[in-house]
Amino acid sequence: MSAEPRTRRSVPVRWIAAGILAVALVLAGIVSYYASSSPDGLNRVAQDKGFSDTAKAPGTGESPLSGYTSSGVDNSRLSGGLAGVVGVLVVLTLAGGLTYVVRRRPRPDADPEPGDRQKAA
């Protein structure tokens, strides 16, 4: 790993953001179809140890996206892919919105109104 001085500006954040979003959409929308449908580690252990039947059906089971399938879409590839894409966009909106609200506002020393800081605190 060399630390050669780069004079040119590196890859813009915007491109990185677009790249991450594209990867997330492809994974959730297309690759997820090929995911293993075997029980996960916890469910498998629960079966083996005999407490899997204590699991109750989730109270949110009537959600149109319940179980990562879109109700009303028959094609299983489309149904799962659509659910995944919707999930990615919802998570992005909620988490992005939350962190945007929480973030540190640019508050340079040249802030003309120091009273703002006290109001916020």
Binding site: A17, I20, V88, A95, Y100
Partner: peptide
């Protein structure tokens, strides 16, 4: 902005 993308 990257935090939302990390979550997604």
């Amino acid at each position: 902005p990257l935090a939302g993308l990390a979550a997604a």
